[in-house]
Design a protein around this nucleic acid. Sequence first.
DNA 1: ATCGTAATGTGATTTAGCGCACATTTTTAA
DNA 2: TTAAAAATGTGCGCTAAATCACATTACGAT
Lengths: 226, 226
Amino acid sequence: MLKPHCKLCNQRSGPSHMLNDCQLDVLNENSSQMIFQAGEALIKQDSPTNNVVYIKSGLVKIHTKGPNRERIMNIAKAPSYLCLHSTFGDKINHFSATAIEPTTVCYIDSKTFTNFIEENGKFAYQVIQSMGRGELQNFHYLIDIAQKQNMGRVAHTLLFFSKDIYKSNNFILPVSRQELADLTGITRESISRILHNFHNDKILKIEGRKISIEKKQVLEDISEKG
Amino acid sequence: MLKPHCKLCNQRSGPSHMLNDCQLDVLNENSSQMIFQAGEALIKQDSPTNNVVYIKSGLVKIHTKGPNRERIMNIAKAPSYLCLHSTFGDKINHFSATAIEPTTVCYIDSKTFTNFIEENGKFAYQVIQSMGRGELQNFHYLIDIAQKQNMGRVAHTLLFFSKDIYKSNNFILPVSRQELADLTGITRESISRILHNFHNDKILKIEGRKISIEKKQVLEDISEKG
DNA sequence: ATCGTAATGTGATTTAGCGCACATTTTTAA
DNA sequence: TTAAAAATGTGCGCTAAATCACATTACGAT
């Protein structure tokens, strides 16, 4: 719960840099910081949206109950805002958010946040920008996934973690096989088989959640070809 | 091309009502109206985003080239804005937009639009709201579709046209079978077979593009069950 | 009308991947 | 440390739906 004054915070959001001193004081009064461990829920689907959530550090899955199984929409990494859509939509959180790595977030009172939007055009502009960028990414992820075969989807998702999240060919997968299934829209069993194949073909080295991409180009090809 | 002065336009957007007289004059100077017939392109993917597009009336498909076939992301109906994401993202249109019914749109110069955001918090607030609502809809459509079997997807999409677009059980499908396939992520052949089945089971009456929903509840069930 | 092209329907065949059943491993709790 | 529970791996049959190959129909232009 302890947090530095927003003015002094070294993990401030882009939009917050548009706020004046007075507004930063208001922000400080109306926000609180929390730390979550992997598996802990930041936001529960269908709860009312009282806060905008700002991820200062860590990694979060955005998920929702589909008609059948759980569906993971997106992996959000710091820095980014959550709940913006719901705050300005119908005030109900349409998605759940759960930490998948240790994560620090600030909860910002919705009313305070919307006041800033109305008072401060530069702030509004930056918020819209970050909404825009976030959504574009999301959409492309969903589209890319939708038209691929299963192997292509898994390749795509592994490359996503490698390139977008960890910027390394060696990383610890932050999700279980079941979650990988929910993220790609594939069954757990098929995920098992596909990872096994990749391992056999020496495209990946896998030890539990530890992944090394050995043949990146091949993985790229599989991802491209679908 | 002829359009009324924005002040007098009876199809003005929600956000535009937040603009003052002076700003409306600026808007009027920096926007132009165009009319499109079904099949004509409003926006081409990968072109630079010089304008925000406001749909005054009509129906538009938002689509993109996927790795394999064309993918229709969404059907946008009036009134709504297009290109907002790209305007505030990387200034490139990530999607194409094509009229599927006679459609009237206003092209608004991007710079003018972003100036309004910075100058006018209430305007910004309304824009953010409409972005929020639009995206939520989009996401739910994609999620719902993703986890259903083909029959469920087709049922869902027909109900979408019936309930969200035409608000009637009788309507003319504004898309071809191929487009229906691109919209649901199914092959054209499977669409044919499924529609045929629905017709045989007297759930729908189909004559070309003319659709009557005869057993709405059954269709709802199919859509729900997946 | 009539020709040519595009859109749509339909059958036969193939196949990816789901679902089930169960083995094995890993994690958690006691 | 051990037991119980959860997560993961694996074999196998089945089915939905893609693919392929044409037939048929609707549509637009001359």
